[in-house]
Design a protein around this nucleic acid. Structure first.
Lengths: 249, 249
DNA sequence: CGACCGATTGATCTCAGTCAAAGGTTGTGG
DNA sequence: CCACAACCTTTGACTGAGATCAATCGGTCG
């Protein structure tokens, strides 16, 4: 039996909402992680009216790119996305991965245009938050404004941590911190922090961490040999969390 | 004659404000670059009352560190600062440099605690924006809220660009893009974009770009040999801007 | 079934890091 | 005001972590 057969769609629970495109925030499984957090019931009702629940995106489908006009911030409803930024000669850097409840496109607020390209890693769906309307609403809902600032600040924090990885960590430390941060985010979403599926390719991981694809592959086998984790295709199982935490820099 | 003798304090124009600690935003030379941008005259007067103009910081003096409690966002009034983030074993990554009009500490909004350590690179001064008061005011001044979001988004953008540098660029490309971004920022502040003083050490630059200090030093001599720029100590003069732009990735 | 794409493994190479030493610069105290 | 010390920068020689090149394997899909 190969492990490929047993892969179930990631974030299946959240994916259910795809069948109810107009599902209100109040009833959404994500509300605990998403914009609604801390908002009053009636504010939420108002917000609900401006949020557009988009149709699904297929694997590799583009959510936005620098040439798109900036009008909305996206929230992942189900599935996952990656964003990339390009050098003038076409080299690309994977800047982030996004999971349900996370906001994509906030770096476009300054300059009012997307800086990066966002692509679906698997069948996914998003909610669209029209930025102008969001701004209007923030004026009357202080908690919404607070929520937006917090989101921006959170992304800033994770970017700074990635800078530390890229600038100062060894290949192994980079990979371990990356996997531990994934584990953390899965756990926040109600999934196991000890065993999860990678929705991105080895190439995406390597690029994100400033490594070669072969290095990532070798590190995976190395981590398995050291009994720190088990990796079978896309499935990661953490075997020795303390040891990993000790080795993540 | 050594170039050291002719160095004048950087941001001298802005430094003048140090003699008028209570100088209102309206009269501040920075208002064009700073928070006041786009704010109405009477809103600004209100804002003025909550902004604390701090005494000066000496070279190497700490503005905040992770153990400090988060209460304020800082705006550079004169001089310059760097922020660093630390790995568990003490390795540090210089995440950003900050010049007059730029905001420091926004990554602390999420978690309500500073993620990084901020240190003055030279004799400097800041304005303190109490975050809670700022939040209150934002509720009544939509333009202020917009300004804050834009600032956060701008920092996010520059971090993403740095990620591209660290992940995908060669040592030379990293250094050139860094110098060109400095040039840009100096020019925005009314200084020459073709000739400016570095306020940070070679070590800070190297660390920021994920390089060794020796590599930065060698690259400087290399760029001089290629007649692309001239570097004498802390003074940088751009000689061939098109060629540099062509080589910055 | 065959073609294609992604992942693994091995062999080799290279860019930038490390180590080492010598100049320069800055700051301090007598 | 000078002299010494501490620190920063430059330059050279060598090394190594991870990239590149190359071949193979495996899984997926038409």
């Amino acid at each position: 039996m190969t492990q490929a057969r047993v892969i179930t769609p990631l974030f299946e629970d959240f994916a259910k909402v795809e069948h109810h495109h107009q599902l209100a925030c109040q009833s959404c499984a994500l509300s605990r992680l998403c914009l609604p957090l801390g908002l009053h019931r009636d504010d939420l009702t108002k917000l609900d009216q401006i949020i557009k629940r988009s149709a699904g995106y297929k694997r590799h489908q583009i959510l936005f790119e620098p040439s798109s006009t900036f009008k909305t911030i996206f929230v992942v409803r189900s599935g996952s996305f990656k964003t990339t930024i390009s050098a003038t000669d076409g080299r690309e850097q994977v800047t982030s991965f996004y999971f349900p409840g996370e906001f994509i496109g906030m770096d476009a607020i300054y300059q009012q245009r997307y800086l990066s390209t966002a692509r679906a890693l698997e069948a996914s769906s998003v909610c669209e938050l029209p930025y102008e309307r969001l701004q209007e609403f923030s004026a009357t809902i202080p908690e919404l404004q607070n929520q937006l600032m917090t989101r921006l600040s959170k992304e800033l924090s994770s970017d700074k941590n990635l800078l530390l990885s890229l600038g100062k960590k060894t290949a192994q430390e980079k990979l371990i911190s990356f996997l531990l941060s994934l584990s953390q985010r899965f756990s926040e979403r109600g999934y196991s922090s000890m065993s999860f599926q990678l929705t991105m390719s080895r190439g995406d991981i390597a690029n994100h961490l400033g490594l070669a694809i072969e290095t990532v592959s070798r590190l995976f086998t190395q981590l398995q040999d050291q009994q720190l984790m088990s990796i079978q295709g896309k499935e990661v199982t953490i075997l020795d969390l303390p040891a990993l935490k000790h080795r993540c820099g």
